[in-house]
């Protein structure tokens, strides 16, 4: 069963092809990675998945529905952590979780989510006073408070220190164990290699390769995903 189907997706901003014919599917329960450097089209693709951006061409189906037409209904079942999004500086952790919890018809109890993701001790702390890792953990918890079937995480670990990154990895592995479908956007190769069942390598708005990390490495005859990526990209930077 496919949780996500993207076929021939195209999106142009002011003459630039942000996404130029992207096709992939994500199976239910799979952790799927979108890899590529900045400007490769990852975020545009993700925004099409959650209905924030309307594709110019192509079809997108998430849980069998069109996100551009059914954004709000789908948002009940799809959680998202957006790149660089934030909350009001003075909102407290518990308030944010309770408020987001009120947006969903069914869903997890926000107190349980707070404890589950280790945010209990921070309950009364203001968003503006949290560390980068704590903020990301809260944004991840907010993506999960509605008990989603699909979770989209855009650059979840960017800017985190190595310990916080490893902690976040464990949280994502826990999601997979619980059967949640995860779309992980990242430009860290170690991360996608450690977490993803399959990945799509994006460059200049197109899919350059798709498969399990080991398949992609084997396909390019390189030793690591990072080397494979540069081989596919055709630039050695």
């Amino acid at each position: 069963m496919e949780a996500i189907e993207v076929r021939d997706l195209r999106k142009t901003y002011g003459g630039t092809h942000a996404v130029d014919g992207v096709t992939f599917t994500v199976r239910t329960g799979e952790t799927f990675g979108l890899v590529g450097h900045n400007g490769a089209g990852k975020t545009t693709t993700v925004e099409c998945l959650i209905g924030l951006t309307r594709p110019d061409e192509g079809t997108v189906r998430v849980l069998g529905e069109d996100p551009a037409r059914r954004r709000r209904a789908l948002a009940q079942r799809v959680g998202a952590q957006l790149q660089e999004s934030s909350l009001p500086e003075r909102i407290k952790v518990a308030e944010a979780l309770r408020m987001f919890g009120s947006f969903y018809q069914s869903g997890n109890d926000w107190r349980q989510v707070m404890e589950r993701w280790g945010l209990g001790p921070l309950a009364r702390k203001a968003f503006g006073d949290l560390s980068g890792g704590q903020k990301q953990r809260l944004m991840l918890a907010l993506a999960l408070v509605g008990d989603p079937e699909v979770v989209v995480l855009d650059e979840l670990t960017t800017g985190l220190d190595p310990i916080a990154r490893r902690e976040t990895w464990q949280l994502i592995k826990d999601l997979k164990t619980a059967g949640t479908t995860v779309v992980l956007v990242s430009h860290y190769f170690d991360e996608t290699e450690a977490l993803c069942d399959r990945i799509a390598v994006l460059a200049r708005g197109r899919v350059r390769a798709m498969g399990s990390p080991s398949e992609i490495i084997a396909g390019t005859g390189t030793a690591s995903l990072e080397e494979a990526y540069f081989a596919l990209e055709g630039t050695d930077r």
């Binding site: 948002a75 009940q76 957006l82 934030s86 907010l142």
Partner: peptide, 11 residues
């Protein structure tokens, strides 16, 4: 600060 955008990704 993309607070509005984050809300647009909720129901």
């Amino acid at each position: 600060r993309k607070v509005l955008k984050r809300l647009a990704a909720t129901p």
